[in-house]
């Protein structure tokens, strides 16, 4: 048989006859191990190479949080969910202090209003214009580093005096060279999956640094 819309027509010799799933399952298990090993190596390399800048950014963010600053995260597609995870980590952490953080992709009324009435390129920019204060921090996730709506928002946030942090993949794209992205962490991989896995690890490490650098709370 051939599944509707399947690729069987490309591989007629593979079709129909194959009935024993054993060899495929063994291949898949090996493939999973290999991909996980690649992911772990990439993560270790990037974390080691990023440690100094992560420390500097985490310290700067802690200072801003201490002064009442807020974290605003953004991203498109899977990266919007990574941004949302970062927001959950900072705002409702498993340990340490909850900090003000929210995702600019969260409000569907605002997102669809801007996307429909103006264009998707401005969905983050217009929110930055409307809501962001100089003490805030804007963090953007883009595996390509080229998302136009992030770049426009970074320009505006930078102009307003915010701290801007980008997480990109491949060679970093436009985010790596834009002066509006003050700190850009590039995960040098051609796989969007492997990039996102390491971006999660970078997010976690950044959160750890921020928590450690917050000014201790005094009595009220």
């Amino acid at each position: 048989m051939s599944a509707p819309g399947g690729t069987g027509f490309l591989y007629p010799f593979l079709d129909a006859a194959e009935r024993d799933a054993g060899p495929l399952l063994e291949d898949l298990a090996r493939s999973a191990e290999a991909k996980a090993a690649e992911s772990a190596a990439l993560r270790a390399n990037v974390l080691a190479a990023s440690e100094d800048e992560l420390s500097a950014v985490g310290l700067a963010m802690a200072t801003r949080f201490d002064a009442g600053g807020r974290l605003l995260a953004m991203g498109n597609g899977g990266s919007s969910t990574d941004a949302a995870s970062l927001v959950t980590l900072f705002g409702d952490p498993p340990a340490g202090r909850p900090l003000p953080a929210r995702s600019l992709a969260d409000d569907l009324a605002v997102l669809t209003a801007l996307g429909n009435d103006v264009g998707f390129e401005v969905v983050f920019l217009r929110q930055v214009i409307a809501q962001v204060e100089p003490s805030d921090m804007v963090v953007g996730f883009s595996t390509s580093g080229g998302s136009k709506n992030l770049l426009l928002a970074f320009d505006e946030a930078c102009e307003r005096g915010c701290l801007t942090v980008g997480l990109a993949g491949y060679q970093g794209g436009q985010m790596a060279v834009s002066p509006s992205v003050q700190h850009c962490f590039v995960v040098p991989s051609q796989s969007i999956h492997r990039i996102q896995e390491t971006q999660a690890a970078l997010s976690w490490r950044l959160w750890e640094v921020v928590q450690a650098a917050l000014r201790p709370l005094g009595p009220s």
Partner: peptide, 18 residues
């Protein structure tokens, strides 16, 4: 920023990732 190569990977950060 610059990114790591395999030779630089020896020292990872502490915490949950380890």
């Amino acid at each position: 920023m610059s990114v790591g190569t395999a030779a630089q990977s020896a020292a990872g950060p502490a915490g949950a990732l380890d």
